[in-house]
Nucleic acid binder design. Sequence first.
DNA 1: CCCGGAAGCT
DNA 2: AGCTTCCGGG
Length: 636
Amino acid sequence: MKTQADTEWAYKPESSPGSRQIQLWHFILELLRKEEYHDVIAWQGDYGEFVIKDPDEVARLWGVRKCKPQMNYDKLSRALRYYYNKRILHKTKGKRFTYKFNFNKLVLVNYPFIDMGSGRGVPQSAPPVPSGGTHFRFPPSTPSEVLSSSEELRSPGMFSSVARRMARGSVSDCSDGTSTNSEMEETVGAEERAVGPERAYRSLLPPRMPHDSLFRVYGAANPVGLPRPAPRVHPEPLSPFPVSPLPGPGGLLAPTLSPALSMTPTPHLPYTPSPSLSSPMMGSHFSFNPEDMKHYLQAHTQSVYNYHLSPRAFLHYPNIIIPQPHRPTPEKPAAHHLHGPPMPLSHSLNQQPGGGEDGHQHPSPFKFKLQPPPLGRKQRDAGSSMAASSSSSSSSQSSSFTGSAQKSSSVLAGGPPKIKVEPTSDIESEEEVEVTDISEEDEMNHKDDEADIFTPAARQHRLQFNNHHQANGNGSSLSAPFLPHSNPDDDPDDDEEVFKTPATPPLGGASLPLPLINLKSEPGQAAPISPGGTRCIPLKLRFKRRWSEDQKMEADGERDEAEDKKVRAEGEDEVEAKREEAPAAVRRVNEVENGGGRGGGGVILGLKLPPPPTQRRASSELQRATAQLSLENSGC
DNA sequence: CCCGGAAGCT
DNA sequence: AGCTTCCGGG
């Protein structure tokens, strides 16, 4: 077994063996979210894409942080490359010093609140991600990781921890993480606050902004999805992070809401039952009653599942379930299509029914699982992986579920937990052990059974997802997790494959577990809905439709490295047209920017966006701060 | 520049 | 596990 021990390390901030210290990608994120460093590294382009304007500086900073004076871009880039396999990052081909995070659902899901950069200039490319936390990890790709879940990630805790971490200064000292806790430099806080408002606006403005939606959702929804991170606790509205460095085992619920959230008009939070989904079912009579909530949730969940969202995400929250797709419902598919405002869906849930504010501590473990590593790459994977896979088998789930599940079962599910259990059939490795998320498998293989059931469309959908892989970055992955469709943009970046959130738990899970199951089997309870039997299906269909439309419109572009993809399959997808890549123009822009930036140009750039329609503007603030770098130098 | 294998460190 | 170092290759 794997059990916690194995996985723990993942969360552990600094203590874990192996990795605990700050991880490079965390560090990158950290820098990205700070204005001070916009001269050296900044979001740019597609969602999750960033450019290192000053490689040497970034490397230097990294070296400082890790106390590796010898660090240089060559080494740093190697480390970055190392992330390719993990699927945390990938290179944006054609653009120098430009990489892209594979944000996916996972991140969002897990750390929705994070706002990434928030900084002002954050382009759409900026994904909401937690920046500073060390704990925060992407989904694991290995088996062992898969299970990880426990400690921090688990719901509330996770958030809090993340938040805390965010608080800490980025570069700062070289201290190992060991004692990190104490550290905290306030620097961040101050800045952030100041900016707060701006950000907020920023987020509001952009059409697409995924984050926005997320934030909102979360804000509103927090309660919903998670056991609720302490809702009321908001630290400060403006301040992005609460500050507590250490995560306590349990306790900290810091609400780490993203600034955005706070900023956002709260109006919807509380109320707003989510128009979107409301559709048939709850629409009219939605209330915050527990029951309603339950139904609501279920419905969403189902939809989501069908969509291929990762179930895991949902699983995490036994009781509640997930936020669901933010997207407004599909009712109108056409409506602008797009970016529409993210609707609130989740928020509705948020409110926990009944008073729920209180407690909640569900232990749901958040486990993330990632996909198997890159198998594609070369020999290494190939040979070994194959072998391994065969052996794999199931193992698993048992461990994972157990605990948490029990408690909350009643909530949603009511029914028997159906969680699934697939023995991982083919999946490669133990990874699957966990709950076996179907989704993953699907994604990977695209076999999905579940979805198909519902409709062919679904299938397509998935395929598309898979195929896209890199889609343009529409970015939107954020929503993906919760919402399948959120913006038109959102596409799964691709990585969807990679990041999946595994879900967790069991129990409560019962409700969520598998789509198939749910749908079909769920008897009374499950069906939340409405009178007819329509319940989920309709929704699903709608979503799909929408999705399809969106996808087509967007057509993703870049497939860049098809390498990965090739693995998956061949098949049928292809429907959509893929654009070859972002147009040259884009590149040019980038280059220009880059060049300028590095040279001292100082230009920030801001915008550019390749993709579709939405765009955003950029802000021009930048320079301000190089001085701050000095902070870091502290001494090692 | 960028890519990854390989070895080594923690 | 997660880099860090080196390094040959494109």
